[in-house]
């Protein structure tokens, strides 16, 4: 249960970071932290009943392998999304010269 609590705390730290920080890069970093919280949550769910990993030469009862299979997909998707976000951030900073989300929002409201 303690692992689940830790995972929730990590998740919350990430969420607060997205709201509080103005710089886009820091916001993205917070998103990454949040995703790490979810990964931790899944792994602790998998090990809730049994702890032994499902590998051939160990004997059961095994930890549930499905959450781990699920989370690998999610890590890959997270990687793709994060790379795309970083590319966008790079292009914005090249074209606009700022990473402040406040300033970008003000400018887009004025011009569009």
């Amino acid at each position: 249960m303690i692992y689940i609590a830790i995972a929730v705390v990590i998740f919350a730290i990430g969420g607060i970071g997205i709201i509080w920080k103005d710089n886009i890069l820091l916001k993205l970093l917070s998103l990454g932290i949040m995703n790490a919280g979810v990964v931790a949550l899944f792994v602790s769910i998998a090990g809730l009943k049994y702890r032994i990993p499902a590998i051939l030469n160990t004997s059961g009862p095994y930890a549930d392998p499905l959450p781990q299979a699920v989370i690998i997909t999610s890590i890959v998707i997270g990687f793709a999304t994060m790379s795309l976000a970083l590319v966008f951030t790079m292009l914005i900073s090249l074209k606009k010269g700022t990473l402040s989300s406040k300033k970008l929002q003000e400018d887009i409201d004025r011009e569009h």
Binding site: G15, I18, M34, L84, T89, I92, K95
Partner: peptide, 28 residues
Amino acid sequence: DNWKHLWASLKYLMISYFAFTMYLTAVG
């Protein structure tokens, strides 16, 4: 490839990544 489009897209990316992370937690 204009900063306005990039910013609109990035905003959507962050909010929906935030949301879908939560969706995944719920699924778990």
